[in-house]
Each structure stands twice: as structure tokens, then as C-alpha cells.
């Protein structure tokens, strides 16, 4: 390149590279500090002052209001336990472990983070309202069509995301990056 005639080219390259790298870094989930339990993922540092700059930027761009560490923790599932993307054309059964928390809620969202329209106008379930068996166990049926028992309506749009929020985790669950914390398994049933 010949002297200062290269300056505009270098400036354009700087802008293009810098903005492309920024857009790429802010796509998708926060790159650091995640905890995975089965199909569920969480980013506990979103809730305290140790949040990293990339996660902070992603939260701002995506318009999320994360839970504070003293409030609880949100877990997100984009796949079932086999790793297949969640799809409302299929039924899902959630059962097994429940977080050691005072209270938890479960909702289904579109990929843009909005609650999914459904004919029942029901947008989630709570641990306090679940029908349980004599041992305290439960099973949640996530499906488009109504199901007896604990039904989580999925609406009609194909791809969806499940979010489970555990409020006021017990101290043992908070310590050690959720060591031993149980969450429901997500098992796909029939697809239409």
C-alpha cells in the first residue's frame, strides 16, 4: 500500500471488522459462565455484579431483565434431553427433579422471548399449583392440545423455548454452582 492513500481503506476495514466482531459476539447466548443441568442452561452471574461485559451487552440488546442472585435463578431449555430442538408440533413430558427452591414457575416462549399465544390464555405453571402424586412427584405435559393434569400450552408456532425460574433457592443449591440441583427431564413424545 502506498503511503497515506491507504488510510481510507484501513479505516473502512477497522469499522467493518470491529462492527462485525461486535455483532457476532452479541448473537445468541452469553459465551461465558453457563451452568448446564440436563437440557437446562443458566448463567448465574447475570444476577450479580460479577457479570462479564459480553453478557451485560447481550442482556441489554435482548431486552432481558435478569433475576438478581438474591431473587432466584432462571434456567432455559432450547432442546429436549436428547438434544433435539423443542418443536411445538411435538408433545413433551417434564418430570423428575425439581429445584430446591421456595417456589418455581415454568413458561414457554417464542424464540424472541415473548409468551406464546394459545387458546387457553395460560402462560405457565407454578410449583404451588401442580397436581402431584402421593410421593410429591409430578409430570407436566407440554403440548398444543389440552391435556389432563399439569398442562403447559405451547401454542401453534413451531420453535419454542422453556424457561424455569427457581425463586429463593436454598443455600445448598446456590453453593457450588448448583451442585446436586435437580431439574425436570424433558422427554419428547408424539409429533404430528
Amino acid at each position: 500500500m502506498n503511503g497515506w492513500r491507504a488510510l481510507p481503506v484501513a479505516a473502512i476495514a477497522t469499522l467493518a471488522l470491529g462492527l462485525t466482531a461486535t455483532l457476532a459476539a452479541l448473537q445468541g447466548d452469553p459465551p461465558f459462565g453457563d451452568v448446564q443441568i440436563g437440557a437446562w442452561r443458566s448463567w448465574p452471574r447475570l444476577g450479580d455484579s460479577d457479570i462479564d461485559p459480553y453478557a451485560r451487552a447481550i442482556v441489554a440488546v435482548d431486552g432481558i431483565l435478569p433475576l438478581g442472585a438474591g431473587e432466584g435463578v432462571a434456567f432455559m431449555a432450547k432442546t429436549d434431553d436428547s438434544g433435539a430442538a423443542l418443536d411445538a408440533r411435538c408433545d413433551y413430558r417434564l418430570s423428575g427433579g425439581a429445584p430446591s427452591a421456595r417456589f418455581w414457575t415454568l413458561s414457554a416462549y417464542d424464540v424472541d422471548g415473548r409468551l406464546r399465544p394459545n387458546p387457553a390464555n395460560r402462560y405457565g405453571l407454578t410449583s404451588a399449583a401442580l397436581l402431584r402424586d402421593s410421593d410429591g412427584g409430578f409430570a407436566i405435559e407440554a403440548a398444543r392440545e389440552a391435556r389432563p393434569g399439569n398442562w403447559l400450552p405451547l401454542g401453534d408456532r413451531s420453535r419454542f423455548i422453556l424457561v424455569l425460574r427457581a425463586y429463593q433457592l436454598t443455600s445448598s443449591a446456590v453453593a457450588g454452582a448448583f451442585e446436586g440441583l435437580a431439574l425436570p427431564a424433558i422427554v419428547r413424545g408424539a409429533c404430528s
Binding site: G63, I64, L65, D112, G113, L115, P117, T126, V163
Partner: peptide
Amino acid sequence: TGADGPTFSDPF
């Protein structure tokens, strides 16, 4: 579904 608030908000 139509709310303009934060994304992934808890309906409860």
C-alpha cells in the same frame, strides 16, 4: 403475548 416489557418475563 403482546406485552412490550422485558423479554422472557415471568407471567406470574
